[in-house]
Amino acid sequence: MGVISWIVVGLIAGLLAKLLMPGDDPGGLIITTILGMAGALVGGFLVGLLGGAGVTGFNIWSVLVATLGAVILLAVYRALLGGRRRV
Rank of each mutant, 00 (worst) to 15 (best):
G54S: 00
V63W: 09
V63I: 15
I34N: 00
R84F: 14
L80E: 09
G10K: 05
L50V: 11
L73P: 03
I31V: 14
L46I: 15
D25H: 13
L74R: 15
A17D: 03
V87E: 12
G27V: 04
L16G: 03
G57P: 08
A75F: 14
G44E: 02
D25L: 12
M37T: 04
G83A: 03
G57F: 12
F45Y: 13
L19R: 11
G52M: 05
D25C: 03
G2Y: 05
L80I: 13
T33L: 07
V8L: 13
R78Y: 12
A75C: 04
R85T: 13
I60L: 15
W6M: 07
N59C: 07
G2L: 05
I4G: 07
G43K: 01
L80C: 09
L29Y: 03
L19I: 10
M21Q: 09
G69K: 01
G82A: 06
L20S: 10
V47T: 09
I7E: 00
V63A: 03
I7N: 00
A38P: 00
G10Q: 00
G36Q: 00
L73I: 15
T56H: 02
L29A: 08
V76N: 05
A53I: 10
L29P: 07
L49T: 09
L81I: 08
G23T: 08
V3A: 11
G48I: 04
L68S: 11
L80S: 05
R86K: 12
A70C: 04
I31A: 13
I12L: 12
G10T: 10
G52F: 14
P22T: 01
G36T: 00
R86N: 06
G83C: 01
G57V: 08
L68Y: 12
L74S: 04
L15A: 13
A38F: 14
I4T: 06
I34F: 10
V87G: 13
R86T: 13
G44L: 09
L35A: 03
L16W: 11
A66P: 00
L41I: 10
V55T: 08
L29E: 06
G10L: 02
P26Y: 09
V8I: 15
A13D: 09
V47A: 06
A40N: 01
V9Q: 01
G48A: 09
L15V: 14
R84N: 10
G54T: 01
A79F: 15
V9Y: 04
S62P: 06
T32K: 02
Y77M: 11
V47H: 08
G57W: 04
G48H: 10
A70F: 12
D25Y: 14
A75T: 15
V42N: 02
G52R: 02
T33P: 08
L19D: 00
G44I: 00
G51C: 08
I72H: 04
W6N: 09
L35T: 03
A38S: 07
G27S: 07
L46K: 08
G83S: 14
I4S: 09
T56N: 03
N59P: 06
G83P: 10
I60S: 11
A75P: 01
A38E: 06
A40G: 15
V8N: 04
V71M: 14
G2S: 14
G39H: 02
T33C: 06
I31R: 10
R85C: 02
G14W: 12
S5C: 01
G52K: 11
